[in-house]
Amino acid sequence: MAHTLARGLWIWNTASIITSQTGTSQLITGAQQADVTDLYLYTAPESYASTKPQLQTFIASATEVGLRVWGLDGDRAYFGDAAGPSNFYHGIDNLTAYNDAVAPNERFFGFQADNEPSDQGDYTSFHNGIPDSALSTAPGSGLWQATQALDREMLMRSWLSMHTTAQQVLHAHGLQFGAAMPWWTENYEGGELSVSFPGDSNERKGIMKYMMGLVDEFVIMSYNTDPALAAARVDAQAAYASTMPAASRPRVYASVEVTQGIGPNISYGDTAGKDFKTVVMNDVATLTSSLMNYAAFGGIAIHQWSAWETMPT
């Protein structure tokens, strides 16, 4: 089946890029050399206003060469067991206000959420390392709710609720909505992460299946330096999305990690003999070939620019 594939690139060092003509030029050149089509540009909630002129210049430069620019934000604190999603929503509102105030060639194409529920720092109500089936249902075992099982259940509902609201706002403004997603939702400690959503629903199913109905792009952080293992982390999601009607299915992406300090066999930047751009691109081609048979397959994303820029050829 013929595909028109895209290639995403995450950018976290936004300030140093958009405030520098040299930084912008180097990014655009590097993106073109890697056949990138979409830039996921980290944009903190207040930065749409505080860096508006710089964003206008940067997006206009990217648009001129056919690159689509997405806003990007995410934080473990946006979940309901922490500070909650109000600042997440505020950022999306600021993005739409920015788009309304600028010329068409200076506008964001969409927004990507990068909200991951696993335990980080002070936030521990996911209960890392425990499958759904082994979560305690004993009263008092929970950290946020009454039980461990209810902790995770309400966290999953919070995740979906955030994305539901984001989708509604973004689609109302003609913007695409994407999500960076962990690969393990279909196989967490041997079992699927499942939830009832909304809370009064009698239907219980995998979190991934609910999320597929909320986003235009489902970008899986399938990081592994073995293309076969990386593809295996995308198979279930791409297969499910491919059963959805063509008009409503999301585009499912795989991705590669190149940042140093993540770990060998996970990041190309840490894996001896694979820490070269040519090797990454060869593996990207292999990964693409493995997933091309899925109608929903949308392409590959690279994490992330500052590491990619300095990686040897």
Score class of each variant (00 low, 15 high):
A301R: 02
T147W: 12
S161N: 15
G191L: 03
D200N: 14
A228Q: 14
S255P: 01
Y223V: 05
T57K: 07
T29Y: 13
A101R: 04
T271L: 05
D122N: 10
E257H: 07
R204Y: 09
W159A: 01
T14N: 01
D275E: 14
D73S: 09
S158K: 01
Y98I: 08
L229M: 04
P182A: 10
H173K: 15
D73E: 13
F177A: 11
I207Q: 06
N87Q: 11
F79A: 03
L170N: 09
M244G: 11
S16V: 03
L135E: 09
T37C: 06
G23P: 02
R76L: 01
N224G: 01
I207W: 10
S267Y: 08
G142A: 02
A60I: 04
Y78N: 10
G80A: 12
F297N: 10
V36M: 08
T51K: 10
L143W: 04
G273T: 10
V69F: 12
A62H: 07
D235E: 15
L143D: 05
A134I: 00
A247D: 15
A15Q: 14
Y89V: 15
T288P: 04
M212K: 02
G66M: 07
A307M: 02
S306I: 03
T51Q: 14
V102F: 00
V284S: 00
T37I: 05
N202K: 11
